[in-house]
Structures are given as C-alpha cells and as structure tokens.
C-alpha cells in the first residue's frame, strides 16, 4: 500500500489560492510584454550556427582552380551513395593533375550527415549554412559541379543569410 507523505502543510494563506493565482497572472503578463521569439521567415531569416550541415559546395583555390582531385573518397564515404564523380585530367598546368569532369549530388538522397566533408583529403567538399533550397521538381534538386561551385561563390564569405537580408533591405 502506498504511504502518502505530506511534504508540507498548506497554511491558511496557501489555501486561499488567490496569492498563487495572482502570481500566475503576473507570469503571463510578464511574457505578454517580453520580446517575441518568432522569426518571420521570408522576411527575416534564421542564421544557423557554425557547423550547420546544409547545402554542399565545392571549394576553390584563390586563383580559381577547383580544389577537388576527384579521388572519390567522398562518394565512398557517402552512406546513401548520392555523390557521383567522373574524374578527368586537370586543365591547369600547376598543381594537381586530376579534377572532376562531372560532380553530381542527388540532394533528394542526401541525408546531410557530413561524412563527405570528413572524408575529403583536400577540404574540397563542404556543407554550408544554406537550408532553404527546396524546389518544385526532382530534376532541379540534382546539383552538378558548376552548381556546387556557384554555391561556393555565394557562401565563401560566411554571410549568406545576413547579406541577403542586407541586399533585400537596400532594394526596398
């Protein structure tokens, strides 16, 4: 049989309930005037923390050469086999000999685990902070090499969301 132990004996003041009710009302009133947490999405955008795993990008050297050497480590590491690479000889004289002729990622298959990023010996593939890249067709969600390089241009300054906000403001 359960033994009921009373942790405290309510006083007359407690039994009136009104002080407690009043305290409760004050809590909700405080929240009424507090700053609201809502982010009004299309106008305001959530800025993800560092290390967020969003859309992929292919990094470039400062002189414009693609970092990727088409070693296919990423596609081997990929648990869902969404990275498809066709290697070819590099068009540049200095540096690496191989580079990807094609580099396709099926974003619909990708689970954004970040294993490709970890497997890459050249720090060529990286996941960016971009999270809103939904589309209406499946075809548009197959991203190719040039697309990935474009993402690099968009995100290389680490200010994709803060900068779009600024440019939207200057437009209006």
């Amino acid at each position: 049989m359960a033994i009921i132990t009373k942790s405290y004996e309510p006083t007359f003041w407690d039994k009136l309930y009104f002080p407690a009710l009043f305290k409760g009302l004050m809590v909700t009133l405080r929240y009424f005037f507090k700053r609201k947490v809502t982010i009004q999405y299309p106008e305001e955008k959530y800025i993800p923390p560092d290390g967020y795993r969003g859309l992929h990008r292919l990094n470039k050297y400062s002189d414009g050469r693609i970092r990727c050497v088409a070693c296919e480590m990423c596609s081997a590491a990929c648990p869902v086999d969404c990275i498809h690479i066709i290697p070819g000889p590099s068009p540049w004289d200095e540096g690496k000999e191989r580079y990807p002729v094609r580099f396709d990622i099926d974003l619909l298959r990708c689970i954004f685990c970040g294993f490709c990023e970890m497997a890459c010996p050249e720090e060529a593939i990286e996941l960016t902070e971009i999270y809103d890249f939904s589309d209406l067709t499946r075809e548009n969600l197959l991203i190719d090499r040039d697309g990935l390089l474009e993402v690099y241009e968009l995100t290389k300054n680490k200010n994709y969301y803060s900068q779009t906000k600024k440019s939207e403001k200057s437009e209006t």
């Binding site: 909700t28 929240y31 009424f32 609201k36 947490v37 809502t38 009004q40």
Partner: peptide
Amino acid sequence: RVSAFMQGRL
C-alpha cells in the same frame, strides 16, 4: 493575438 503574446509568439 494576446494568447500568442503570452506564449512568446506573434
């Protein structure tokens, strides 16, 4: 509106 405000929403 008030219910939203009391829950920290808009």
